[in-house]
Write a protein that binds this DNA or RNA. Structure first.
Length: 270
DNA sequence: CTCCTATCCTGCGAGC
DNA sequence: TGCTCGCAGGATAGGA
């Protein structure tokens, strides 16, 4: 379940592996598609160029070269790892060989991930509709207030929409709404201005804490998968149905909203 | 426009 | 013990 903090942790790990700006010698594709078809010819055009930097926008990793960007979205189960030739695993779909001997392998059992190519990320169809980064100044109480005004969808759904703000998935939406004292089913238009300010603050808090937790347990290795550990032990409501609220001991409730399991304290969140 | 639902995919755990 | 079944979820398309 890589959300923004996990993707940021992976980005930092990849950046460290690629700090010498190695030249891409060759891409090896073991299949033509993941969730979407892979633009193999476009991506092969990056062979012979250096990876100058690994960036992140939303939950996408961007490998920057002078000839364009390789985009990677990890979906649910995607991972990058440095591998030896003898290290072959099921669901290894793509490999990148570099001139310094490094081999990066993309593995994704569920194939919910995306590999794509972009000349200029800002104008790429996957990016043009995206809202602000949650940790940037562009994400503000004013912006959230505008986004929620008059809306009759549950606030949780609106928060999880990448058009509102990127990187807030099911887990961190539940966690942030708990910290803000707002029930996930409350309609967007019913969230007050002061609650928007609170929401912006706690979304930043919860993401920063998770990034710190990921960073401390990963250090200099690209993580094998986003599925384990990290921030999990810090969840206050997510996946805790029936357990006592950390604040008032009321049993945490689970409710499906917009097809996703949501967790909240019925007493602390109104 | 806004809102909602189905779809994609495989591994895992609960239940029998 | 081995089987089935539901669930995990971000992005997207399409219908109401």
């Amino acid at each position: 379940m890589p959300e923004l903090p996990e993707v940021e942790t992976v980005r930092a790990g990849l950046q460290k592996l690629l700090v010498d700006r190695p030249v891409i010698q060759k891409f090896e594709f073991h299949r033509k598609d993941l969730r979407d078809p892979i633009p193999i010819k476009r991506i092969r055009a990056l062979e012979g160029h250096r990876i100058d930097e690994v960036l992140r926008r939303s939950k996408y990793l961007l490998f920057r070269t002078e000839a364009g960007y390789l985009l990677s979205h990890l979906g649910m189960t995607g991972s990058w790892r440095a591998a030896q030739d003898s290290d072959r695993r099921s669901h290894d779909h793509v490999a990148i060989r570099f001139d310094n001997g490094l081999k990066l392998v993309y593995r994704d059992p569920r194939r919910f991930g995306i590999l794509d190519w972009a000349d200029v990320p800002e104008t790429h169809p996957r990016f043009v509709e995206l809202g602000p980064e949650p940790l940037s100044d562009a994400f503000s109480a004013d912006l959230l207030w505008e986004r929620l005004r008059g809306r009759e969808a549950p606030v949780k759904n609106i928060l999880m929409s990448a058009e509102t703000v990127v990187g807030v998935g099911n887990i961190y939406a539940s966690e942030a709404l708990f910290r803000a004292g707002i029930r996930p089913t409350r309609l967007g238009g019913k969230v007050r201005r002061d609650e928007c300010a609170r929401l912006v603050d706690v979304i930043r808090d919860v993401l920063r804490e998770a990034i710190a937790a990921g960073g401390s347990s990963i250090s200099d290795y690209v993580q094998a998968s986003g599925e384990t550990g990290l921030f999990q032990s810090s969840f206050r409501v997510y996946d805790r149905a029936g357990e006592p609220c950390v604040s008032c001991a009321t049993q945490i409730r689970k409710q499906v909203i917009g097809g996703r399991s949501s967790y909240y304290c019925p007493k602390c969140q109104r």
